[in-house]
Write a protein that binds this DNA or RNA. Structure first.
Length: 619
RNA sequence: GCCCCAGUAGCUCAGUGGAUAGAGCACCGGCCUCCGGAGCCGGGUGCGCAGGUUCGAGUCCUGCCUGGGGCGCCA
């Protein structure tokens, strides 16, 4: 199996592209800008002389720009003095033109300070590149991302928020890094509930049912079906017969089923559109798609001798899973009544994704409660040979969305919150936040007021949806997080609106200075910026971390690492902005600072874009 | 009972085995004639508990405590 760190191709590429004294290999189709990776490559070379493959343990430092701690563990292994080993590394270390200070400190730390000229050149190169120095993967993978997965004829609720937002973010980043990303929306469009739903559809009338479903009144439809099922013996019998008809392919039943699916999908599209995610109808590969493959899944498992019949059910017992009595825990593939469990569908999906799609990596953006189920499916798929060693499967799990009371977010009446209601409230709250800022002396709405009502509603949508997404993507996905309107919509702190505002303010500097830039194109002023002030230098270094941050973000599928970086970049820019006036008379200095400002805006716009958040130029 | 996840400042959260654990919010006191206040400076006995590994532990290991979740035919 590929380790997760395989996606850390970015750093590895840099290391292989910038080896010592092999500058000719720089002539590549695209560039990759990462000063720390450059330094790492040279440190590796120096450490290799002492012990091949020794890790320099390079980190950002508060005592210099970078620090290499690798001499300490290496000295320990060799039974030598750490300062002595570090000194030997320094003798072999060639950082000419890159660092102008390299010093040995403490018990064996190596502190490294970049030469301003090097940083300035790297920033100019970053500005020249439409992709801001982010290269494409040398060996692109085909990566399936399974996310969102709502159920037909059931409301999309707050529980679908995280999978959809996180999954979409990972898709955007992987795609940007040059991988072949395949979105898979595994909707719940099959199973016994459809007998009940189709019978209810018949009772209500097709036209009325289609209307209810397409406008998003899914809860009422589902609950009414459920109520009939529980209250009415005749309805129950009809429903059961209908399930049999559906599974046997009865044309009229299939037509009614298709009606349910199509109307639901139409509604999902409305929600996706509002949320601003990439998912389209082409990404829908529902459970029904795998239905014809299930018998083959079972027979193949049987042929491989993995299937064990237990209490009438056909099961596989992967090693390492036990139940509450300590007995082996089965993955039930076929139920005792002959029906297929969802495990069978998941196994069929793995086979399909590996064989038909040709995936080398499978990501499942699914809540942590499903962890055991997915691990069992992966284990069985490996036993069956459906998941070869060169294909990895990863559960990208996430925690719950909690209300202010610290419990799962619910409405006052205790129902789950409709996702579409939540999004509408976000947009409405954003609009009033923007308007109330406009009433203050120098606040925001007047800056877009001239563009009329559509501009306000457009910005409100970007800010409101962005706030919800950012709140979700700015904390470690494995933890639960508390949903708090006031905090996520604040223009201060680590929030979406703050970052959007930072971006808009930089755009404002350009407007005032009668300057402009194109966020998706090479800069018009790709000059090496002056880094004489500490704040200019700090901003430059922050900008040059972008590639490393994306690398770290995708290595653990943790969007919050990108969020944290963007926030720190914005605060670093604020410090620069306070100390270094951009629109000065000195033309050289003005262009230099405009370049730093432009790069910051472009990094913010790109980073927010990768999170699935839009960055308006005015707000 | 077994397994998984989480526990860091009053609150919400960062924190690659490295040197003195950081932000934001809230609170108090000062400051700023300035590109849209994105403000600035000062004010804190915080890593659930106890062991262990290590030159070095918020981070790794073991046990416990607390909270959430999962544990055979729903998906």
């Amino acid at each position: 199996m590929c380790p997760v760190s395989d996606l850390r191709c970015v750093t590895r590429m840099v290391q292989s592209w910038f080896p010592c004294r092999q500058g000719s290999r720089l002539a590549r189709k695209w560039i990759m800008i990462s000063p720390s990776a450059e330094v790492a490559a040279r440190l590796h070379a120096a450490f290799d002389v002492i012990e091949a493959g020794a890790d320099p343990v390079l980190k950002p430092s508060d005592r210099a720009d970078l620090q290499a701690n690798g001499a300490l563990p290496l000295a320990k292994r060799l039974g030598r003095d750490a300062r002595e080993v570090a000194a030997e590394v320094l003798e072999r270390l060639d950082l000419a033109g890159i660092c102008d200070q390299v010093e040995l400190s403490g018990p064996g730390f190596i502190n490294l300070t970049f030469a301003d000229s090097y940083l300035a050149e790297q920033l100019a190169a970053m500005a020249r590149d439409a992709r801001l120095g982010i290269g494409r993967a040398e060996h692109p993978e085909t990566i399936v991302v399974d996310y969102s997965a709502p159920n037909v004829a059931k409301e999309m609720h707050v529980g679908h928020l995280r999978t959809t937002v996180i999954g979409d973010c990972l898709v955007r980043i992987l795609d940007f890094l040059g991988h072949d990303v395949r979105r898979q929306n595994h909707i719940g469009d099959w199973g016994t509930p459809f007998g009940m739903l189709i019978e209810h559809l018949i009772d209500v009338g097709e036209k009325e049912a289609a209307h209810e479903l397409s406008v998003g009144d899914l809860n009422r439809f589902y609950q009414a079906a459920r109520a009939s099922f529980e209250a009415n013996e005749d309805f129950r019998n009809r429903s059961r017969r209908r399930v049999v008809l559906l599974q046997s392919g009865d044309p009229e039943t299939r037509r009614l089923w298709r009606l349910l699916v199509d109307e639901s999908v139409r509604y999902f599209d409305v929600v996706y559109e509002k949320l601003g995610v990439l998912l389209t109808d082409d990404d829908i590969v529902g459970e029904s798609f795998y239905n014809p493959m299930l018998p083959d899944v079972v027979s193949d498992l049987a042929a491989k001798g993995l299937l064990i019949e237990h209490e009438g059910a056909k099961c596989v017992f992967p090693a390492g899973f036990t139940n509450r009595k300590g007995e082996p825990l089965p993955l039930i593939v076929q139920k005792s009544d002959g029906g297929y469990g969802y495990a069978a569908t998941d196994l069929a999906a793995i086979r399909d994704r590996v064989n038909r799609i040709g995936a080398t990596r499978l990501l499942y953006v699914v809540g942590t409660p499903q962890s055991q189920h997915l691990q069992m499916c992966f284990a069985v798929a490996r036993m069956a040979g459906w998941l070869p060693d060169n294909v990895s499967a990863v559960h990208v799990g996430f925690g719950n969305v909690l209300g202010p009371d610290g419990r799962m977010l619910k409405t006052r009446s205790g129902e789950s919150v409709k996702l579409v209601d939540l999004l509408d409230e976000a947009i409405q709250r954003a609009a009033s936040a923007i308007l109330s800022r406009g009433e203050e002396e120098s606040g925001g709405a007047r800056h877009i007021a001239g563009e009329g009502e559509p501009a306000l509603s457009s910005v409100a949508r970007m800010v409101g949806i962005g706030a919800v997404k950012y709140a979700d993507l700015s904390t470690d996905r494995t933890r639960d997080y508390v949903f708090d309107w006031d905090r996520m919509l604040a223009f201060e702190g680590n929030t979406g609106p703050y970052l959007q505002y930072a971006h808009a303010r930089i755009c404002s500097i350009f407007r005032r200075g009668k300057e402009s830039f194109d966020r998706g194109a090479p800069s018009a002023i790709p000059i090496p910026p002056k880094l004489g002030h500490p704040q200019e230098r700090a901003l430059g270094i922050a900008l040059l971390r972008l590639v490393d941050v994306l690398d770290e973000t995708i290595a653990t599928y943790s969007p919050h690492k990108l969020s944290t970086y963007l926030y720190s970049l914005a605060t670093t820019f604020t410090d620069f902005y306070e100390h270094c006036r951009v629109l000065v008379d000195d033309e050289v200095l003005r262009r230099s600072r405009l370049l730093l400002s432009e790069l910051t805006a472009r990094v913010l716009a790109l980073g927010l874009g990768l999170l699935g958040i839009e960055a308006p130029e005015r707000m």
